[in-house]
Amino acid sequence: MSWLDTILQGILLGGLYALFAAGLALVFGIMRLVNLAHGDLIVLAAFLILLLVSALGLNPFIAAAVALPVMFALGWALQFLVLNRTLGNDILPPLLVTFGLSVVIQNGLLEGFSADSRRISAGALETASLQIGPISIGTMPLLTFLSAVGVIVALNLVFYRTSLGRAFRATSDDSATAGLMGIRAERIFATATGLAMMVVTIAALYLGTRANFDPTMGPARLIYAFEAVIIGGLGSFWGTLAGGIIIGVAQTVGAAINPEWQILAGHIAFLLVLLVRPRGLFPRAVD
């Protein structure tokens, strides 16, 4: 039974990775921008929630709800004022600017919050679990997974059922023609990054309540998110969930064999998928 339990834990962990990945996939899908600061933005959001919890005594879920519009505004401004300037045919400027941003956020957080590891307390929820037959499922991991599914359903609805989503797709396909139809690409891009930052905030809530975090752990989250996106195939939100689950299961199975192999097993699963299916499992976008 323990193997079944291990795999189930892996699937639930995959929900967290899918949350990390969804924001990255959203931004890449619309403007072909890879944000190397994505992981650090997740950690920044986790510190914002921590600040709201400790300063105002809010429940973490309420604090995350307060953080959502703040992070949206931050993402909107970041895209509108900085990242829009880097978009073009050359891949160097966006990569190097977001890499610089990653270093700035990491060291800013180190200055502001020190290198200590922190945790957002979720009270009794942290240890609560559901007993289904012989298997017990932690409530927090289950909530994380359900949130990931909810986020992906919501993103698909926004993308394919709203006028905003139509504008996203039109700008992504051909921003010049979309411009002729009255769509202002720079505002669409800013809204997309704002939306991605809201997903990041939800990811940060679970990152901070499930385990300890510190200012330097952003890059590793970026790598998990990236692996999930590539495994899933570019442009597919459900694919990122599948990718997250593969990384999550590989990590828990690896850890069950030898605790030191946890992270390594996830990376190796990624390489194997890259070897067999270079374009991922469910590719949708052309590049």
Binding site: R85, T86, P93, L96, V97, G100, L101, V103, V104
Partner: peptide, 9 residues
């Protein structure tokens, strides 16, 4: 990092 971003922009 800030100098790097400003130069790149």
């Amino acid at each position: 990092g800030l100098i790097g971003i400003l130069i790149m922009l």
